[in-house]
């Protein structure tokens, strides 16, 4: 049940990305190009997603446990640190350079395999590098 729900969630997520136009790196870049030919589409995507998710959080607060597991496993929400802000800023540089974030990049593997695979391979290497640095600490 849990496995099926995770697969369906990924599938719906991928379909949403494809319909929204967020799998077009130039369009995503256009949203970040506030001083140029600004493309507001990403704002509508965020708006639609936030609306549904806000409702989901409302329901979640009234549930004892998720449908297919014994307990919710959710991250903390309060601790602000340099890592959080610095890591996010670093990610933003990549996002602005290529117009790609992890979701659309992975979804693109199926439809635009060549550029997507280059980006995803480098992204996985970056994740591995972080893991390596973490273990050395």
């Amino acid at each position: 049940m849990r496995a099926v729900l995770a697969l369906v969630s990924g599938l719906v997520f991928g379909a949403g990305l494809a319909i929204s136009g967020m799998m077009d790196p130039a369009r995503v870049r256009g949203f970040l190009d506030v001083a140029g030919a600004w493309d507001p589409t990403l704002g509508f995507v965020m708006g639609g997603a936030l609306l549904v998710m806000a409702l989901a959080w409302f329901v979640q607060r009234r549930m004892v446990r998720p449908v297919a597991d014994d307990a919710f496993a959710l991250p903390g929400t309060h601790n602000l640190d340099v890592r959080l802000v610095g890591g996010a800023a670093l990610f933003g540089i990549g996002w602005g350079l290529a117009g790609l974030c992890p979701g659309p990049a992975i979804a693109s593997l199926a439809v635009h395999p060549e550029p997507a695979a280059i980006f995803v391979a480098a992204m996985v290497a970056g994740m591995g590098l972080f893991r390596f640095l973490e273990e050395r600490r």
Binding site: S9, G16, F44, M53
Partner: peptide
């Protein structure tokens, strides 16, 4: 903004939110 796609964006966004809701309420994860 002739390049904007507000309707597709909104529909896609709702689907992304739905996917997040399935993961949260079904599996209990982000």
């Amino acid at each position: 903004f002739p390049q904007a796609q507000p309707v597709q964006g909104l529909i896609g966004g709702v689907l992304i939110g739905l996917a997040g809701a399935i993961m949260l309420l079904g599996v209990g994860r982000i």
